[in-house]
């Protein structure tokens, strides 16, 4: 995973709340069996609408998505994150995220930035006024900056450290393999296993 420290890019305002993962990537595109290519179908069905903000040429090279509250609710599909990263997005801002989406974003180095509704609105207005405005996401300083606006954000300190070093979870966990083996030695042998033990009655 690429380390994330500071990102400077253009932002796109998505003035919608409750953006569920079925909208980010409709299910019929989930039969893809690799990470690559999902970006082609980001917000596929909303893009039918010529007025949809991602069809606006002024925002085509945006790398920061500023969305309304409850972004990424619903299905666990990690392809919702791959669709965003596949289109070049590095960060998503919203007052609140779906829990599974939030974790999936962190797994892929897409920074989910929780900012309050007032800051979201202020950002929308700024970037609508000037779509070429440079927006800075500073993970080290835990701050979003745009023009004269500076908005602090909170993120779990461990998640932040991991992102800034581009570390993946499995490698971190493998340092504790002995602890896992020890836990396993203490598990009750009467707990279920998945092999076929008895016939279905």
């Amino acid at each position: 995973m690429e380390p994330f420290t500071v990102h400077v890019g253009r932002a796109v305002p998505l003035r919608r709340t409750n953006v569920d993962t079925d909208q980010i990537i409709p299910v019929r595109f989930l039969t893809r069996s690799s990470i690559a290519g999902y970006g082609e179908n980001l917000f596929n069905d909303w893009r039918d609408d010529p007025d949809f903000v991602l069809n606006d040429p002024r925002f085509t090279d945006a790398s920061i998505l500023v969305a309304g509250t409850d972004f990424g609710i619903g299905s666990s599909r990690e392809s919702a994150v791959w669709a965003l990263t596949g289109r070049g997005f590095k960060a998503v801002l919203s007052p609140r995220f779906g829990d599974i989406f939030y974790g999936n974003a962190l797994s892929n180095g897409l920074l989910p930035v929780t900012v309050d509704e007032a800051a979201t609105k202020a950002l929308w207005e700024l970037i609508e006024r000037d779509p070429s405005l440079a927006v800075t996401i500073d993970l080290g300083a835990k701050q979003v900056r745009a023009a004269s606006l500076a908005v602090p954000f909170e993120i779990d300190s461990h998640a932040r450290w991991r992102l800034m070093h581009g570390l993946d979870d499995v490698s971190l966990t493998e340092h504790h393999t002995a602890r896992i083996a020890d836990y396993e030695s203490r598990r009750r042998p009467t707990m279920p296993t998945t092999g076929r033990r008895r016939e279905v009655s």
């Binding site: 666990s76 990690e78 599974i100 974790g103 999936n104 979870d169 499995v170 966990t173 896992i180 396993e184």
Partner: peptide, 14 residues
């Protein structure tokens, strides 16, 4: 529910 990266994590480490 978990994501695909977490599935890989559980497969590898339980």
């Amino acid at each position: 529910g978990i994501g695909t990266s977490q599935v890989a994590h559980v497969l590898a480490t339980q």
